[in-house]
Design a protein around this nucleic acid. Structure first.
Lengths: 363, 363
DNA sequence: GCTCCCGATGCACACGTGTACGGCTGACCC
DNA sequence: GGGTCAGCCGTACACGTGTGCATCGGGAGC
């Protein structure tokens, strides 16, 4: 029993009036438990961590008192002592539906492993992004999951020595291990599906901010056309910034071509949203006049009119796997630079046979 | 100068091999800076916190060294000492698009105020939900923002003495201050819009998990019909669990009625998604045969075919305001039990005049 | 009856930061 | 020239938890 408390000196702290009821009731600590259990606080610490060094009866008594007091160990103090916070930073663009699903997977996996999540919003502003990243350092996160495809702050992240995993964006250089899907093969399957339907004038509507995942998708598109012996028409390969608004504008440009496409491969479901809107404005019917494909299979894709043919990207599973990989990394296990998940082509109503008068010849 | 360091005892800690390069280089502390600057660590602490108790030149020297070392104050230690973590817990259903937008608002507002966000996924499982909430206590968050409308864990949250604010779900009892929109008035405006278009058989497709916000919306619907002198037909007031799948099923039931509705008020945009799908299956055209309205104005609403008439719910702003309110609460300012934001009726293409043969008489 | 060993507990210190208080130095005033 | 005061810095302690080592008591083996 220390018996030396009760004369707390810092009377000025705790300035915020919480409820004006309890007189600044600080949460119970192991010392409080120790006093009640007639032991010292190290014994309490050991008992609560199920150390074999404590006798069964003492441990039971201590745990009972802890329960009664509503004790919850301070993760701050523990983190300070053990140098591990059991916290991982999650860098993502809050509001992005894909990132949201990834976050769900990460959150569930983290919860199971006793990790907490520090949510850091991927700011546009470079200066704020910098501060946000420093926040993670200050909070001493054990590792970081980056769920933001347009992570141009990767160099910053690597500069600090924190274990890092990426989702859906492999990085240039040696960088960090990433969880990906086979973007190239998936987009190739999309294009092959369209070719199989008789389309020859197939456009590609890309996402300029899609980083390497985007490059792989474009490569898949080109590969499919190449294999089918269809030449690449540069004017049919365009890109926007990834938003439906921009996609709509860009789609209008495609439709103004002399020989407009009969099918469009969109780099994402969001892009497809804008593309379909452009067709609607021009009274073109999907899929009768024009076929459209998306990428990602976001939750709304199945409910569009018509339902969107797209590639299922297992976002939640990707998040869970990223968290799992991060744990491996923290445990010291070496990881492959990339973990690749299967993507599945989902055929729905937005694709159909090419209009007859246009098929088979004349790209 | 303490001069007593260098004999660190806990050689067994830090078991995880990070990169096998740096020999467990612990981040620099104020003591490291103090040694280099030939002062003691309290002076460093004061200098970095811009205390007037330090001479300008000493402070400059210290800050220079800190910068050079890449120093970032440990939020853990600071939280331990000051009893404030500058962290707020964000309880939300990750993956839900509305919650995602709210999260974005919260994140931006939190960033500006120097708060970090602890993301806690609102688990279905009661036992996990309990653990998740205890996690926030253990992490000693200063306050909590609840962005999950179906928060049946509110009692748990109130049990711990942590300041709390709610988004889009006012709570029973005295509970916590909430940021809301005028659900009742907004849905009334929706129904009045449909009535103005000549509709008389207007159905309501609710969300059973919508809590009180849902009750208010239904009340608004009833109020509008009442004012227009239209009787309530119980068979036209139905509810599902909020998912598009369930909404589709329930919509089919509505369409099987002897006298099916000519318009449907959906409790959310997600519900509207399912409802429109049901109509598509039956080859009913929106809005020619049937008008549909949503609620929320999620990002996809404007891009549907046809674009969805709905109520704009300023999710991001609600999140930001919730965070702001939480700060007020932490500062001791009393808050009104509810802060109400304006919602705006957005007219788009999914509503039109009622089919002629059905209007004006015979509800 | 002595030693040896083992199980259970206490002691001391560490983690990194914040702050109340005291002490030192120099300038200023009477 | 001594007292006073302000500015600046160091000392000591606190926050809550973890852990290496010492200690203490008791049982076993000789």
């Amino acid at each position: 029993m220390s018996g030396k408390d009760g004369n707390r000196r810092e009377g000025t702290a705790r300035a915020n009036v919480r409820c004006a009821e309890q007189p600044a009731a600080r949460p119970p600590s192991i010392k409080d438990i120790a006093r009640l259990a007639q032991v010292t606080h190290p014994t309490v610490s050991r008992a609560l961590r199920n150390s074999p060094l404590v006798s069964a009866e003492t441990a039971a008594r201590i745990r009972h008192i802890a329960e009664e007091l509503g004790y919850h160990a301070s993760a701050l103090a523990r983190g300070l002592a053990t140098r591990q916070t059991q916290t991982v930073g999650l860098l993502m663009e809050a509001g992005n539906p894909f990132a949201g699903e990834v976050a769900r997977g990460v959150a569930e996996a983290a919860g199971e492993r006793g990790y907490a999540l520090l949510l850091v919003h991927a700011q546009e502003d470079a200066e704020r992004a910098h501060r946000a990243i420093e926040e993670m350092v200050a909070r001493r996160v054990d590792g970081i999951v980056v769920a933001s495809p347009r992570a141009r702050d990767l160099p910053l992240l690597e500069a600090m020595r924190i274990p890092l995993v990426l989702v859906d964006s492999d990085a240039p250089g040696k960088a960090a291990p990433a969880v990906m899907i086979a973007n190239r093969e998936a987009m190739r399957a999309v294009a092959q599906h369209l070719i199989g339907l008789g389309h020859r004038r197939i456009a590609y509507l890309g996402d300029r901010n899609g980083l390497r995942a985007e490059a792989a998708r474009l490569a898949g598109y080109k590969s499919a056309l190449g294999r089918a012996g269809i030449g690449l028409a540069p004017e049919r390969i365009v890109a926007c910034d990834g938003s439906p608004e921009a996609a709509m504008e860009t789609m209008h440009e495609l439709l103004r071509l002399n020989r407009p496409p009969t099918a469009v491969c969109c780099a994402s479901d969001l892009v497809a949203l804008g593309a379909m809107q452009a067709m609607r404005t021009r009274r073109l019917r999907v899929p009768n006049d024009l076929s459209v494909t998306g990428f990602g299979d976001l939750f709304f894709a199945a409910w569009l009119t018509p339902p969107l043919t797209t590639v299922r990207q297992p976002a939640r599973q990707m998040g869970a796997l990223a968290m799992e990989n991060l744990c491996r990394l923290l445990a010291g296990d070496p990881l492959p630079a990339q973990t690749c998940l299967d993507a599945e082509l989902i055929l729905r109503g937005s694709t159909a046979r090419a209009p007859k008068q246009e098929s088979d010849f004349a790209e």
